[in-house]
Simulated assay, not measured.
Amino acid sequence: MFSTDPVVSVKDATIFQEYNAVLSDVSFDIQKGEFAYLVGRTGSGKSSLLKTLYADLPLRVGEATVASYKMAGIKASDVPLLRRKLGIIFQDFQLFNDRTVAENLMFVMKATGWTDTAKIKARLTEVLIQVGLGSVEKKIPYQLSGGEQQRVVIARALLNQPVILLADEPTGNLDPEVAHGIMKIFQQINNTGTAILMATHSYGLIKKFPARLLKCESGKVVDSASAPFELTSEY
Rank of each mutant, 00 (worst) to 15 (best):
G43P: 08
K51H: 14
T65H: 06
L124I: 04
L159I: 10
V101L: 00
K119S: 08
S218W: 13
G134S: 10
Q161P: 01
I120H: 00
A64D: 08
V101G: 02
Q143T: 12
W114R: 13
I74D: 14
E148G: 07
S47M: 08
K11V: 04
T4W: 02
E137T: 14
D175P: 06
R41H: 15
Q150T: 02
S77I: 07
V163P: 05
V101P: 05
K138W: 03
K75A: 15
L158W: 04
L82I: 04
F229E: 03
L128H: 14
V222D: 02
G219P: 07
K208L: 11
L38H: 10
L81D: 07
E169L: 01
S9Q: 11
L159Y: 09
Q187N: 13
A179R: 04
G33F: 12
M71V: 07
L59C: 01
L38S: 11
Q31E: 12
E63T: 14
L95S: 09
S77L: 12
V136G: 12
V153G: 00
M71P: 06
Q150P: 02
K138Q: 13
I120T: 02
K51G: 06
A179L: 09
I74L: 12
A199E: 10
R156D: 03
Y203N: 11
K75D: 15
K32N: 13
V152M: 04
V152W: 05
G193S: 04
G73S: 11
I30F: 02
D98Y: 06
D25P: 00
F186T: 02
N104I: 01
V8R: 11
T171E: 10
F90C: 03
N97H: 05
A111H: 06
G204L: 09
L82F: 03
S224I: 11
V22W: 06
V61S: 08
P170T: 02
G45Q: 01
R212T: 11
L105V: 01
S77D: 14
L144R: 10
Y142C: 13
N173H: 13
A195V: 05
P58T: 00
T42C: 11
G33M: 09
Y54T: 01
H201E: 12
A211Y: 09
L213N: 14
T14V: 10
T171I: 05
L105S: 02
Q31M: 13
V152I: 13
K220H: 15
E169Q: 09
V10H: 07
A76Y: 12
F16P: 00
Y19E: 12
G204D: 15
V153C: 03
T192D: 07
